[in-house]
Amino acid sequence: MFCHKFSHRDISVPVLAARLPGGRFSIFLICLLIVCSIFAAGCSSGSSAGSTKAADDTAVLTPAVRIPTADGTETIGNETVTVDISNTSNGYIMASYHGTAAQVNIQLTGPDGVTYLYFISEKDTYTAMPLSSGDGSYIIDIYEQMDGDMYSNIMSDVIEVTLQNEFLPFLYSNQFVYFTAETRAVEKGNELAQGCDTDLDVTAAVYNYVVDNTEYDYEKAASITSPYYPDVDETLDTRKGICFDYSALMCTMLRTQGIPCKLNIGYAGDIYHAWISVYLKSVGWVDNLIQFDGKNWSMMDPTMASTGGDSYDPSQEQYTVMFQR
C-alpha cells in the first residue's frame, strides 16, 4: 500500500471563459457531406480510439436507453472495493467501495496511455466507467482518501478488453453522461426525434433545441467545484448550464436515439472546455461537428453556438481533446 497526493485540478471542470461563435445547424447539414468528401481523412478518421473494428458495423445504432449493470459474473478486487468486469465487451466497468473513507479515486488507464479519473463518494453503490480507449489492456488503480488530498492505494490490476462494437462506450449511460429510463431529457429526445428520417435529422433537431433553449450560466461557471457531474434534467428544467451541461444534455438525447456521441474534454484554444463529437451513418465520426455559416468554417459546439461571438476557425487547430467520456 502506498500514498498518493491528488489535486482536483487534475479533473477541473471545463468552463467557458470567453464569448465565442455559433451558428445554427441548417447550413452545416447541407455542407457536411460536401466537406467530408473533400476532406475525407479529417471527417472519417476519428473512429473510436484503440478500436480496430469496422466502422460500418452499425446494427447496434438503434434507439435504446442503455443502462450499465453490475452482473457479478466476473469481478476483481478485495474486501474494500469490488470492480465488476462482467460487461467489458459492452464498453464499461463498474466499481463499488465498501470501506469508510469519505471519497475514493479510480484511475483507469487505457491502451492509448490516457488516464481517466473517477470519484466514488457513496458506499456500496456501483459507479459506471466507460472504456473509452477501445480494445486493449486497461490498468485499474484505486485509492481511498486518507486526509485532504492524500490518498492510499487499495487496489491495482490489469484487464484485457475486446469490445463487441466500437460504438458501445459512447451509447451507454456513465458518471458524466448519466441517464436512466426515467430521465426527462430522454423523453425530450424522443419527442425531438419524432418525424426525423435520419440520424442527421435527429442530430439537427437536438442541436437546435439545446442551443435555442439553453443559456450559458456565467454565475455557475464562476463558482463550480470539482469533481462536477452534470445533471441533464436540471439543465433541461432551468435552461441554464456550463459547457459541460450542454454537452452532457446533447449526448444523453443522442445516445438514447442510437447515435454514438462522445463527450470531449480538453481545450478550445487555451480555454478548458467540453464539447461533442457524433457518429453519423452517412459520414462516420464527425469530430467537433464542423459547421459552415455561409462565410467561415467553425466548430459546431453547442455552448459556443449559443453564446455568440466571432467565428471559431478549425483550421487553426484550436480544439485539443484530452478525454472522451
Rank of each mutant, 00 (worst) to 15 (best):
Phe2Ala: 12
Ile11Thr: 13
Arg19Ala: 14
Pro21Leu: 07
Pro21Arg: 13
Gly22Met: 04
Phe25Asp: 06
Ser26Arg: 04
Ile30Thr: 14
Phe39Asp: 10
Ser45Thr: 08
Gly46Ala: 12
Gly46Glu: 03
Ala49Phe: 06
Ala54Ile: 13
Thr58Asn: 09
Val60Leu: 12
Ala64Phe: 07
Val65His: 02
Val81Met: 03
Val81Leu: 08
Val83Asp: 04
Asn87Gly: 08
Gly91Phe: 04
Ile93Gly: 05
Gly113Ile: 11
Ala128Trp: 03
Ala128Phe: 11
Ser133His: 01
Asp149Val: 03
Ser156Met: 04
Glu160Asp: 13
Asn165Gly: 11
Leu168Ile: 01
Pro169Phe: 09
Phe170Gly: 00
Leu171Asp: 05
Gln175Thr: 15
Val177Ser: 02
Tyr178Trp: 10
Thr183Phe: 13
Ala185Cys: 07
Gly189Arg: 02
Thr198Tyr: 02
Thr203Cys: 09
Glu219Ser: 10
Ala221Asp: 01
Ser223Ala: 13
Ser223Trp: 01
Ile224Met: 02
Phe244Leu: 11
Thr252Leu: 08
Met253Cys: 09
Pro260Tyr: 03
Lys262Ala: 10
Ala274Met: 08
Ile276Ala: 14
Ser277Met: 07
Trp285Val: 04
Ile290Ser: 01
Phe292Trp: 15
Gly294Lys: 09
Asn296Lys: 15
Ser298Trp: 13
Asp301Leu: 10
Pro302Arg: 12
Thr303Pro: 12
Gly308Arg: 07
Tyr312Met: 10
Tyr312Lys: 04
Ser315Phe: 15
Glu317Pro: 00
Tyr319Leu: 15
Val321Ile: 15
